[in-house]
Every structure is written in C-alpha cells, then in structure tokens.
C-alpha cells in the first residue's frame, strides 16, 4: 500500500509498449491475411484505388477533359491504353480521375450513413422504451424506400446532382447502421462490465462513451467496409441513369452510360470503366469479408 507509482518509467513505457503492440498487431494481421489470400487481393485493389485518387495527376498521362477531335474513338493502343471517347479524351485518364468522384462519393455516403446511424442506434438502445420503438418503426419506413426511387424524387425536387443522389443513398442506408448499433448497444448493456459500471454510479452517457461505442465499433466498421462495395455500385448506377455526376465530370457510372451507345463497335469505351466499378466493388467486399473473419472470435485463435 505504501509503494508509489514510479512516474518516469511509467511515462516512458506506454509509448514503447504501444509501438511494440502496433508492430505485433501488424504482424498478426499479416499472419491472418496470409491465410486468406483473397483478403490480400481485396486490400491490394483498395490500395490501388487509393493511389489513383491521391495521385491521379501523376498517373494519368493526359488531361481527362482535353478534347482532341482528331483522336475520336481510338481503340486501346500504347498511346491510349484504354482507347479514347467520342470527343477524343483519353479513357485511361478519365477512369483514373473517375475514381475520385465514384469512390469519393461512395466513401462519403458510407461515412454519413454510418455516423448518423450509429448515433441514432446507440441513443435508441440506451434510452429504450417508447422512444426506441418509435425510432425503430421510423427506420422500418426508411428501409422500405428504394434508394433509386428516392434519388429520383430528390433529383426531381432539387435537380440532378451528385450530392443529391448521395444524400438519397445515404438516407436509405441509415437503418442498417441503426439496427446494428442498437443491437450492439442492447447486447453490450447486458455485459457484466457495463453492469459493473452502473453499480459505480455511471450515467448512461458515461457508459455510452466509455464502454458501448468503443466495443460496438468493430462490427460496424466491418459493415461499412462491406457496404462500400455496394455503394460504389449504386453511385455508379445513379450516374448511369443520369441522376448522379453530370458531364463533363468523369465518373465511372457516367462513363459507362456514355459508352453504352458505342457498345457494339467501340467495346472499350464502356468496358474499362465498367471493369473499374466491378473490381473496386469486389475489392471492398473481399476486404470486408476478410475483416469480418478476422474479428470473429470463433476464428480468432486458430
């Protein structure tokens, strides 16, 4: 009882311990992913897309908006890897720049619906009772709305724009996160450590901040990663039907849409942006699955 904590070593050790535990964790992640190579493939795809987003001006050989009427609808070649479009813009550059609009939009959608959903869900779970019931019924209503129809309605009311369609998709995705966060909250509330916290006199807010949110996050992040793939598809679909990114912005869905008219003779026009969508969506799903498996306690210690 008399011993006092030695302050200097204690102050120095956490940083060292943290550094050690981070490298340990990375090693562990590496160990886990080696056993599921598909997760690695997915992670590579996402890394590639990230590089495209960050370093688009460096990678892209041409200005994506530079019109060159002499080079219209050229097939893939050494100069134009993915060919050119009907006004002679380099498709490879447009696909690379398109990653910004497509994936940026998808990321924002998931971020918005996740944060709003988690907030509502945790609140609902902690408060419980009639408020909880009311919120959950409201979510059922939102869940019944088809994303595309809502997007069309918003486009009709506010005009077609990438932001409006993002909003529509984000709203429709909120209930999934509300349910997940609420379910997590309800089960965590019954955990012994939360009960212990209650016996110490903790307020619901304290419990939410210190116990529920940190513990509820891993499944929610898995859900978000899995969602990302689907949302990339939906954002592309909205642009494809003209409700999302407006020309001349390069966006994968919009590119596929414009390439549609040339599908038979100029196959490359729609194909490459389409492949970009496919591969990105797949990458997100693979990583999402991989993370879920890693976090699954039943698979953990094997």
């Amino acid at each position: 009882m008399s011993a006092v904590v030695p302050s200097e070593p204690a102050a120095a050790s956490p940083a060292m311990r943290r550094a050690k535990s981070i490298s340990e964790r990375l090693r562990y992640l590496w160990y886990l992913s080696r056993r599921s190579p598909l997760t690695l493939v997915g992670a590579a795809v996402i890394l590639l897309v990230l590089i495209m987003i960050i370093a688009a001006p460096v990678i892209a050989p041409y200005n994506p908006d530079k019109v060159s009427l002499t080079a219209r609808l050229l097939p893939p070649s050494a100069a134009h890897w993915f060919g050119t479009d009907e006004v002679g813009r380099d498709l490879f550059s447009r696909v690379i720049y398109g990653a910004r609009a497509s994936c940026g939009a998808a990321f924002m959608i998931v971020l918005i619906s996740m944060s709003v959903g988690v907030l509502i869900g945790c609140f609902s779970g902690v408060v419980g009772g009639r408020v909880d019931t009311a919120i959950m019924r409201l979510m059922d209503v939102v869940l019944a709305l088809p994303a595309l129809v809502l997007a069309m309605a918003l486009a009709a009311a506010l005009g077609p724009s990438l932001f409006n369609s993002m909003l529509a998709v984000a709203i429709v995705r909120i209930p999934a996160y509300v349910r997940l966060a609420r379910g997590q909250t309800l089960s965590l509330r019954e955990q012994v450590f939360v009960k212990a916290s209650r016996t110490f006199g903790a307020s619901p807010f304290y419990i939410l901040r210190w116990h529920i949110l940190p513990n509820a996050m891993s499944p929610i992040i898995v859900q978000a990663t899995l969602d990302l793939g689907g949302v990339v598809l939906i954002a592309a679909a909205l642009s494809f039907i003209g409700l999302g990114a407006q020309p001349p912005t390069s966006e994968w869905g919009a590119l596929v849409s414009s390439g549609r008219s040339y599908m038979l003779d100029q196959w490359w026009y729609a194909t490459f942006p389409g492949l970009a969508i496919l591969i990105t969506a797949m990458g997100c799903n693979l990583v999402g699955d991989g993370i879920r498996d890693m976090l699954d306690p039943r698979l953990r210690d094997r």
């Binding site: 012994v192 450590f193 009960k195 212990a196 016996t199 110490f200 903790a202 304290y206 940190p214 513990n215």
Partner: peptide, 28 residues
C-alpha cells in the same frame, strides 16, 4: 462495491488496467 464471478467479462477488454481500476473514481 461488487466483485463478479468472471473477471473476463466484468472488465472492459478495450480499456487499460489503470482505467479499469480507477473507473469508479473517474465516474465520481
């Protein structure tokens, strides 16, 4: 104060030991 049966579940696995031990004081 209460001490529960299973220390595995009565301690939040995401908090460091000093946080766990001082939780009642933190709440106060």
């Amino acid at each position: 104060q209460i001490v529960f049966q299973d220390p595995q579940s009565s301690l939040d696995r995401r908090l460091p030991v000093w946080r766990l031990i001082s939780e009642p004081l933190h709440i106060r």
